[in-house]
Simulated scan of single mutants.
Amino acid sequence: MIANRKDDHVRLAAEQQGRLGGHHEFDDVSFVHHALAGIDRSDVSLATSFGGIDWPVPLCINAMTGGSTKTGLINRDLAIAARETGVPIATGSMSAYFADESVAETFSVMRRENPDGFIMANVNATASVERARRAVDLMRADALQIHLNTIQETVMPEGDRSFAAWGPRIEEIVAGVGVPVIVKEVGFGLSRETLLRLRDMGVRVADVAGRGGTNFARIENDRRDAADYSFLDGWGQSAPACLLDAQGVDLPVLASGGIRNPLDVVRGLALGAGGAGVSGLFLRTLLDGGVPALLSLISTWLDQIEALMTALGARTPADLTRCDLLIQGRLSAFCAARGIDTHRLATRSGATHEMIGGIR
């Protein structure tokens, strides 16, 4: 049953990518263009550091799948793409491995194909410390992702309905697993209040994984006999909303959920993310064109991220947090409702003050 569910998730997630479109709240984030801000491209580095974790690039292949023969082949190909481009990669939820060790190869193939890359194992918030350690050991993982998915579980016919123990269990895993722990949503976002709780639990990094990408409420609803939960299609906060909500929390964050292009990656970095994760679009690219297509896409994205950083005058991904940003539209309304001051973002580079001083 688990293998069938994993195959269903892949099929439905890929189908969703073909229907995504229209306005996204990343479109409410724009850079103030300073025509003399550019630097030499040779001075730009894509390397990023956050929460004691170092990545060679600020982009990763985020958690997707595993647990069936078909998904094992997908994981193999994703790992090859990660190896050839240098991007970090995460496994999908390893719950299938805990239920049936015979599917271990559908996950461990990622380490075999990518022996020196940065790999994150992925477990749910009900996993015991012992299971979390097993996942890390199987993958020889550099970090552990714990995913939060209350809305997905709620819509899933066979889903969990007991969530009270998740917080204490996360604390136990953080204390006992021996590698950095990254807590991530699955597509509904992490609020400021949640981030503060995670920080106090000792979580190293949070992946906000906001609304606008793969929608697991819709996926699980499509698996039901009747579409009982279609009213949840718009549930949650977008990635840029979560990143703005995270200002001042003092917990490193990653951006994922609805990232469509290199500009969205750079927007996420400018909003304070240490890196960005992509799942659905990379999956659809792989299924449509194989490893060569995914390699080409990731390589192009990395080149274009570097090009945008050059034009913006950012020598490192962290330097993007000094670029001037305008927050408009629905995202601006969210910030107003949450008491988030966006005006300072528009002049944080100091360029405006320097120009006024020069005129005087």
Rank of each mutant, 00 (worst) to 15 (best):
A3D: 11
V10L: 12
A13K: 05
H23N: 03
H23G: 01
H24W: 14
D28E: 05
V29T: 07
F31G: 01
F31K: 01
H34R: 13
A35M: 12
L36R: 09
I39V: 14
R41G: 15
D43N: 13
D43S: 14
A47T: 12
S49E: 12
G52P: 05
W55Q: 00
V57M: 04
P58N: 05
L59H: 08
I61F: 06
G66C: 02
T69E: 12
K70C: 11
T71R: 01
N75T: 02
R76V: 01
R76K: 13
D77Y: 06
D77Q: 13
D77S: 13
D77A: 13
L78K: 02
A81S: 10
E84M: 13
T91M: 08
T91A: 14
A96Q: 04
Y97E: 01
S102P: 04
V103L: 10
E105S: 15
T106W: 06
F107A: 10
M110F: 09
P115E: 08
D116V: 10
G117C: 07
F118M: 12
I119Y: 07
M120A: 14
A127M: 04
A127K: 02
A127P: 04
R131D: 15
R134C: 06
R134W: 03
R134I: 03
L138F: 09
R140Q: 15
A141V: 01
Q145C: 05
H147N: 11
N149L: 07
T150P: 12
E153L: 09
V155H: 10
V155S: 07
M156D: 01
E158C: 02
E158T: 08
E158S: 02
G159F: 10
D160S: 08
R161G: 03
R161N: 03
V174F: 03
V174Y: 00
G176A: 06
G178S: 04
V181A: 04
E185W: 01
R192T: 01
T194S: 15
L195T: 05
R197Y: 05
R199S: 06
D200Y: 04
M201R: 12
V205C: 08
A209I: 02
G210Q: 07
T214S: 09
I219G: 06
I219S: 03
D222L: 14
R223V: 01
R223C: 05
R224P: 09
Y229I: 01
F231S: 13
G236N: 07
Q237R: 14
Q237L: 15
C242D: 07
L243D: 03
A246I: 00
D250K: 10
V253H: 04
L254N: 03
A255M: 10
I259Q: 09
L263Q: 09
L263V: 11
V266Y: 02
A270G: 02
A270P: 04
L271M: 00
V278G: 00
R284N: 07
L287I: 03
D288W: 02
D288C: 03
G289T: 08
V291R: 04
P292D: 06
L297Q: 11
I298T: 04
I298A: 02
Q304T: 11
I305K: 01
A311R: 12
R322K: 13
Q328M: 08
C335R: 06
R338P: 00
R338Y: 02
G339H: 02
D341Y: 04
T342C: 08
R348M: 00
G358K: 15
